[in-house]
Design a protein around this nucleic acid. Structure first.
Lengths: 331, 331
DNA sequence: CAAGAAATGGCAAACGCTTGCCATGTGACC
DNA sequence: GGTCACATGGCAAGCGTTTGCCATTTCTTG
């Protein structure tokens, strides 16, 4: 068997040419005679030659690898981003390294340091780093961001302006005149954007909106949020994300409050589960898979050019109306 | 700023030693004088030296990277495996490359080929390859398997023997005398193990069990399965996995069949969502995160030794009883 | 105090590939 | 026929490490 893997030199020897010719046969097709190239490729195929990525990376400085950093791999919101990034990387012939930053900015910074020599660029989702930290890191290795806009860097964000309008319009159509925003973590960039959008949309509609929280963006954050909402007498709530919304609905059910009969509930993300919780959840869907893919594409365009900064891509959002919202009951 | 990254030679120069000494200061601490080592490390720190992984890999043949291959990144069952593997890799100071095989054996084989030069080993979850293909691949690069046992290779599997007994005991305790197994894909190794276990446990209990399917292991597989179950007149069903179970319950609800009133439903996996679907789902939980972590640990022990084969680790499972199961109603 | 062992550090050769530069061969053009 | 440009392929110098081997120094030991 292959006691030793064939190298460039083996192929060169077999084809009767120099290693440089073999190398160029692969990387610069037009730099070598058509017939020579054929021969080299045939030999390479016959020997089962596969280039050694480490050696390629050493000389060229390119690893053909990019890293994706997410705060929590198991959060279904990021599953889509991961899948999209994986797809995008595969399409571009790149290998994807996955890093979990455990929702910690320290872990995130450490991971960036540890990987920056090993990868050609980063896609960072929901980064916890400051704008300055990000920009500093970006001077060493290209970075694009998902769900976080930082001037001068490539970013892919969801269109919350439009999305929050959709939510507000939907609630208004059911006769709601006010609602409560159940907030997530204070540091969350997307949380801030959502709240801004909701305020603006509500203002346009002349609706009243209050904010509650912050709460944990998890199922366990639900009970506290639910109780606060009940105390407020709201007819509708918009939650920081679906998980929180589901936790909240569960608590409301325990307390005998009907959804959407007495309170309408809207979430964000359209995560796995939003269509089979009870009641099914009206939520603003983001194309997370697209976001991951686009972020990789954006990164790829940056890498060769080493251009400073990058454009921001805004991805559409869609309101998915399900069972958790309904008309106001004037009791 | 750092117009050029510091190399071993820079550190060696600054510390007044040879590059070999710097290298050893890092990799073979006892091979170098304590005081010299201190000095070297201090200089390295001061210069912000980070070793170039490509160069390390080139000479040593070790990339300090492992790959995790899963059939579908977005499947919540694998989220736990991914997280565990990521944790395990981080603990071992390894970088984790993630690959999605798109539930295709061809894609899986291709990914293995593409990555085998770039990683020190593979963890493959729910592999679609044949035993022979796996063993062949394992001769070139160490491999451990999750949820798939293949003789001569390191494997981490869930204890379905015990788990299926728990399920059957639970159903029996509610008075069920028979149940239907709603099967998933025919090629699924874990599906086969589950079915075997259920049959054995049912036989011990003197319970009758039939098999239905195969069905798609997705929400959309649920309706067909539900209708078949209804036609069978079963009082209890055990589904190939939670997603299928949830899809099935949804269909039952549409058809006005009460769960667990008329039919009890049990799933496998305890995926995200099993505790907030309606009714909440009784299911056999696997420690998927542990599985991922253990698989990496197993791989790590194999890598340096290059030992052929490896042990099989069996992880416990726990029945999580929720709302979808209940006593038989003798109508 | 001599002789051998251990500790320590340096030299230089890989590792497998890319790439700048040069040599040769070929055809085009005047 | 001579000059030039261009196409093609080879040479060899790295890229930043690791590591086998040797030289030197220091420590033991009898």
């Amino acid at each position: 068997m292959a006691d030793r893997r064939p190298t460039l030199a083996d192929v060169a020897h077999a084809a009767g040419v120099a290693t440089s010719t073999v190398s160029r046969a692969f990387s610069r097709p037009q730099r070598v005679n058509h017939r020579t190239r054929e021969r080299v490729l045939a030999e390479a195929e016959r020997l089962g030659y596969v280039p050694n990525p480490a050696a390629q990376a050493l000389e060229s400085g390119r690893t053909r690898t990019i890293a994706l950093l997410v705060p929590d791999i198991t959060n279904p919101y990021f599953s889509g981003v991961i899948k999209g990034a994986e797809r995008g990387a595969a399409n571009a012939g790149l290998t994807l390294v996955l890093g979990d930053t455990a929702e910690s900015s320290a872990a995130e910074a450490q991971l960036v340091r540890r990987l920056e020599r090993a990868v050609d660029g980063f896609v960072i989702a929901a980064s916890r780093l400051t704008d300055d930290e990000l920009r500093t890191a970006a001077t060493r290795t290209p970075i694009t961001l998902v769900n976080r806009a930082t001037a001068g860097m490539g970013c892919v964000v969801a269109d919350y302006d439009s999305g929050t309008h959709q939510i507000v319009d939907h609630l208004a159509s059911y006769g709601h005149r006010s609602f409560v925003f159940v907030g997530g973590p204070a540091e969350s960039w997307s949380g801030a954007r959502r709240w801004q959008g909701l305020q603006a949309a509500a203002a346009e509609r002349g609706m009243e909106v209050r904010r509650s929280g912050p709460y944990l963006p998890t199922l366990s954050g639900g009970p506290a949020a639910a109780d606060a909402v009940l105390a407020s007498g709201a007819t509708a709530v918009v939650c920081h994300n679906d998980i929180l919304a589901i936790g909240l609905m569960r608590r409301l059910a325990e307390r005998g409050v009907s959804v959407p009969g007495e309170i309408s509930v809207v979430g964000f993300d359209d995560v796995f589960g939003a269509d089979f919780c009870h009641p099914t959840l009206t939520t603003l869907a983001e194309r997370t898979e697209d976001a991951g893919r686009r972020a990789v594409e954006l990164l790829v365009t940056q890498v060769p050019l080493r251009q400073a900064g990058g454009p921001t891509r805004v991805l559409p959002t869609q309101l998915v109306v399900r069972g958790s919202t309904g008309p106001v009951t004037s009791m």
